[in-house]
Write a protein that binds this DNA or RNA. Structure first.
Lengths: 153, 153
DNA sequence: GGTGAAAGTTTTTCTCT
DNA sequence: AGAGAAAAACTTTCACC
């Protein structure tokens, strides 16, 4: 865990919110001049505190109308079996997130697809036949009312 | 839904992946010169295809070790009751995502907290007492093996 | 809708405190 | 670690195709 001062935290909060602000603007907002501000940002990138930068796109405007959460249980919870399933998920572009959970369900995964047909096709030909899958329960998202990426700084 | 050509799609794919690349580099990658490339990006921002840009931070390096998925059922599914719950969620910084689902569970929400104690405190003092909540089932994330923001372009 | 050049900013390096 | 100045790179606008 990185040790950060107050300036770092404000800086990260700003970049989490507006990932493309200029370094000059960022420096101004956190009360620095540009050079030390840039040094801090580079250091945070090096340390892996900042993993990267991403444009947030509107899925519906790009023709992806379906978001689904799938609860997946595996046949075996051996580390080996878990890893094999996770590796398979990495190759599926429709699968955006894979979280291993405690309790009865082994994984929750978030799936984005163009339409119901594409999703059904994905479900039967890709997800259900994935290694070690015992059961899959899916829930369609009706609407997403909050979707803040990142952490509560 | 916006109508996009092949260049727009490649452009969006690049920005989704690397949100801070320069316009010159972006133009180069999609086979344009800088001015038309910038015009396209600005147009996509205007249309809302690009919603914004965000730095992706490492939660654990910032001291947020807990990610939880909570399945929430409400007492009433009247639009009114749903909205009231959603509004309450908007004010809770620990709540990063709120998705309304079909079926028995009404909502799945993603929660990020500093530690188990902070999460328990949040659960009992903020989430369970939220408007119209009938039941909350939570699952702790053991590990996140895939976390690609955005859509499968 | 795309190009090339020019003007204005921003990033980035260097040096000093 | 932060500040100011200078060089290099990038963004942005303009006239033109």
């Amino acid at each position: 865990m990185a040790n950060l001062d107050d300036i770092d935290r404000r800086l990260l909060s700003q970049l989490q919110d507006e990932g493309r602000i200029t370094n000059v603007e960022l420096a101004h907002r956190v009360g620095l001049t540009a050079p030390p501000c840039l040094r801090r940002v580079r250091a945070l990138e090096e340390e892996g505190v900042i993993r990267g930068y991403h444009a947030e796109l509107d899925p519906s405007k790009l023709g992806f109308s379906i978001t689904v959460f799938a609860m997946v249980s595996l046949k075996s919870q051996a580390e080996n079996a878990l890893r094999e399933f996770e590796e398979a998920m990495k190759d599926l572009p429709e699968v955006r997130e894979v979280h291993m959970l405690n309790g009865e369900i082994d994984f929750i995964i978030k799936i984005v697809a163009r339409d119901l047909q594409a999703f059904q096709e994905f479900l039967t030909s890709k997800l259900t036949p994935a290694p070690n899958v015992a059961s899959v329960k899916t829930s369609l998202t009706i609407r997403t009312s909050k979707n803040d990426p990142g952490v509560p700084l």
